[in-house]
Design a protein around this nucleic acid. Sequence first.
DNA 1: GCGTATTTGAGGTACGTACCTCATGTAAAG
DNA 2: CTTTACATGAGGTACGTACCTCAAATACGC
Lengths: 351, 351
Amino acid sequence: MHPDMKKLETTAKPTTRDLAREAGVSIATVDRVLNGRSGVRRQTIERVNKAVEELGFVRDISAANLARRRSYRFLFVLPAAPGQFQSELLNRIDEANKAFLSERVHVETVYVVENDAHAIASTLDDVDPEQTDGIAIMAPASPQVRDAIERLTRNGINVVSLISRQVNSDEAHFVGIDNVAAGRTAARLMGWFSQGRDGDILVVCDTMNSIDTLERRYGFDEIINADFSALRVLPSVECYSESDRTRVVLRNVIDRHPDVLGVYVAVSEAERVVPALADINTDKSLKIIAHERTPFTEAALEAGRISAVIAQNPGHVVRSALRVLRAWIDGRETIQSQEAIRIEILIAENL
Amino acid sequence: MHPDMKKLETTAKPTTRDLAREAGVSIATVDRVLNGRSGVRRQTIERVNKAVEELGFVRDISAANLARRRSYRFLFVLPAAPGQFQSELLNRIDEANKAFLSERVHVETVYVVENDAHAIASTLDDVDPEQTDGIAIMAPASPQVRDAIERLTRNGINVVSLISRQVNSDEAHFVGIDNVAAGRTAARLMGWFSQGRDGDILVVCDTMNSIDTLERRYGFDEIINADFSALRVLPSVECYSESDRTRVVLRNVIDRHPDVLGVYVAVSEAERVVPALADINTDKSLKIIAHERTPFTEAALEAGRISAVIAQNPGHVVRSALRVLRAWIDGRETIQSQEAIRIEILIAENL
DNA sequence: GCGTATTTGAGGTACGTACCTCATGTAAAG
DNA sequence: CTTTACATGAGGTACGTACCTCAAATACGC
């Protein structure tokens, strides 16, 4: 056996009792210091803190939460959109809710109309600070939502934004990928796919009003212009989440630009856009890059209908949001590297 | 506010007390049933279980662990190799040890000589079941280690294998990537990089005795042969973790094969192999794919000296191992999707 | 119907922390 | 030197679960 192991047995984890003995004060005083209650001399506070250092005391969060009768009540605010990525996200929330039940974490979900910033803001305003400890919101960035988040924060409710960053809101931690970098990544792949040929590249988005889409497009152009000058990126095709419109618009663009080599589907509803592309481009020579791992994109990758997918792990996003909110409440640090959401490159081989 | 929220307030999480009332038995009996103690009639057991179902009782693990005085003492067994990936892994273990301290998880690390299966096995045999609750081992697959793992399991110590799968050991859960798929992924990328040209591809490994390397090579060949017939994969270059040897062998091979287009560095010590390649291939036309994210590979990606990296997240690996071990001890389920280690494709744009 | 074995209940203590009250100590202000 | 404010100690209860003991109730064999 390795020599250090004995320590585990003899040196048990120090408790508040040990702290009191070490600092030469009573347990009550230790408690006052640890929980920042008033009525302790500066000098005594320092004695206790020194004991904490020396014994390496770490508060037992389980016991503390038990004593406090604390449970974590979190609320996910999600757009009521029907896409596969949405439902994937929902499944992960359900999953997390079940898994964290034994750790006193309760998760609920409420839906909002995606395009109505005022409605979203008023939903947020209606949240009762007495009954909610934290909120994870996925909604397009807007001043109304940003302000509502600020009000929540002032009321003591922690907020993180999911997938879509709420700009200018330093209050809200962001859980999601860097969309500019995602666009750059897509561009690099598209460049490789083009094999040095010249031609046009199509970028499909819902609406250019979405900051996420703008950022992706920005990153995409950046790399294509810098490193793949043989490629021209056409103006973004906006399809406003409507299947019929998508079909018509795509056909128009591709008819007018026979040199289209590849398509970057910069929105998450690949299941709506890609089939439309397949109908138009029957010879399957188009290189398609889409976003998000869903049953549709998985199948399409395996069938070779999509060449690559840029994804963020929805389970990771959900759990990260919960961990960040919880750490915030506990006054703990998070593990930085754990909370960074990776820009995943998925191909048929690494699914 | 959404309508469900009130429930949180009124319907508190049921406790053993509630269970007892619901089942019409005493708390002591509930306790006997929940903890599988003897001396309860079958009929009574069922009454209690029914109450568990109906109330949706979930045991509060924090409180239970507190009462049991349970702490989780885990041991990482790592090869004493000096590579950057190793030290990355170590950092993550340290990090996890600190972060999980407040959840009564203690992690220690012990080093073994990588190539001495007997020594590793005897290290495992020396572990005291009284003082260790679980082991995560990273070591080349070998019958000796596999048998030692089986002995540990019989003694009630749960074991997971990290990075390298211990074959034929169904006892030990594996935390790491599918190496065949990793090889396939590398091959697909290499194919894209080759842009349809024909030429030779070099595969660099430590030794062909390593199952991990064999699997990567197998997957690599599979895709190259199937989809990129213009490329020929040369016999693997073995460099036995020695810098001098690496340099000599690589120079020999590249001198003899001027058509080498790309190199797949199938081992984790890219920091040893890639600089050697750079010395030889001064015109920088070689496309290099390496394994594992390390300070070296990050810098090399950004500088364009490496085109892509196939990686597994060491922090994720460490935490997943700990979660799996803990769930095992608690008799809980793990979240499947959380414990799958992804084969990450890293390029300069998605770092 | 008796004795014995099994099943159940009642009640306690403990885990490590939070939070409360009340008594007592000490220092500063008058 | 007293008054007052503040600082600290001592001791308790609680959280939800585990685990223990002992007594009481019930079932079972004969």
